[in-house]
Nucleic acid binder design. Structure first.
Lengths: 218, 218
DNA sequence: ATAAAAATCACTGTTTTCGGTGATTTATCT
DNA sequence: AGATAAATCACCGAAAACAGTGATTTTTAT
């Protein structure tokens, strides 16, 4: 890619503060982005004469769901890069975003260096996902393109049940007569496969997906 | 209590190995227990001419649920001390045992010093619960004798929801604009109130009790 | 009004989780 | 027979959870 090429970006967010902040960050740290346009609604965004090289979208817009907007942009300008910028860090929310084939996900809570890094990576043709979103991405990837299913092995299910019962890794190792390292590996695979960030998330996901049953009433 | 008094105990377990092990431990470390009787079924236990000072019962017996046996013993000999000895460390199971007003709970996985300690404490008129059971005990205590309900405050529910969504304490603190210390306190209260040992257990309990809903399908 | 509960924050130490990486041995499937 | 997945174990470091204690301020209820 030509190092002297300049890029255009469209920032879409219904909060002016966010727009100004992003604009400022980009202006000061990313001189290769020469055109910075903004929009505060989905409609306004679609009216801007594109294509832009990069779209950075909030998912919560007054007139339109940000993900609908993603569809529109993808339809018109398939080569554009799209970064989603959201305050929602909920896992199911991230999964939704992932399915729309975006190039990057940012959370509004992050600091400006991350924004710069994300833009650099996306412009370079790579993807950027916030740490929290990375796990979810991997999980979905396995399910769709990888061809592999994310079904759990018998042993993993064993470990999962013990985890959901509040056991620590060392306790599980004892009860299943395994090394702690082994249980930790299973645990890691569980987190990966279910796209969970920690055991709380793991249990919630597993129960919600019906992988493990609710606890019997006592 | 007279230091020279000797005590009697009835050990009930359907595994002879366990009986022999317990017997051995008691003989070698607890000279104050002079009468050690054993039974391998609930029926056999009830046929032994009591009362014994202490009953140590397995909950899994071939002919009878150990908790039924507790009832029988309590009815006949209200002053006897009862210790439950079980391999089941599941929380809901512990809760069940707790409700039967026993003096101690041991898990078969523990080492012999704990057995001795438990017997000493129970003989002295105190209670003994394995570490894992202690939390559950505190929770139930609040619900019944304490008069206090274990209902969660609004803030605690807030924090719980975030936890169940896989958020870390620091993330929750950020999102709710609280100090990390505060969130940790809420978390601790949640664990106490729901009788959970860690977040995995917390989420499982909260979902099972219907305190928080399952995650929306995506 | 005043007692009780809720909400807030602080400090400290230990244990556990989480993430990355890599490797070997069985099963299993094609 | 060879590829693939499952199951096993190891080592490391950083981050988070967990446990115990204590304390102040605000709400809420009696």
């Amino acid at each position: 890619m030509d190092c002297n090429k300049t890029f255009s970006i469209l920032l879409v967010d219904d909060h002016d503060l966010v727009l100004q902040g992003l604009k400022r960050i980009i202006e000061s740290s990313l001189p290769e982005i020469s055109v910075i346009s903004t929009a505060m609604t989905g409609r306004e965004a679609l009216e801007k004469s594109g294509p832009f090289d990069v779209y950075m979208l909030d998912v919560e817009l007054p007139d339109m769901n940000g993900l609908e907007l993603v569809q529109h942009i993808r339809d018109r300008y398939p080569d554009s890069r799209i970064i989603i910028n959201t305050i929602h860090e909920e896992i199911w929310f991230i999964k939704n975003i992932m399915r729309h084939n975006v190039n990057g996900i940012l959370f509004k809570s992050i600091d400006s260096e991350k924004v710069v890094e994300a833009l650099r990576r996306v412009i370079a043709g790579n993807t950027y996902y916030c740490r929290n979103a990375e796990r979810v991405r991997r999980m979905l990837h396995r399910n769709t393109s990888g061809g592999r299913s994310c079904s759990l092995s018998a042993r993993e299910l064993d470990v999962l049940k013990h985890i959901s019962d509040g056991k620590s890794t060392s306790e599980i190792a004892d009860e299943l007569c395994l090394s702690i390292n082994t249980v930790e590996t299973h645990r890691r695979h569980l987190l990966d496969k279910l796209g969970a960030r920690n055991v709380a998330d793991l249990v919630m996901t597993a129960v919600s997906e019906g992988i493990i049953p609710l606890r019997k009433k006592d």
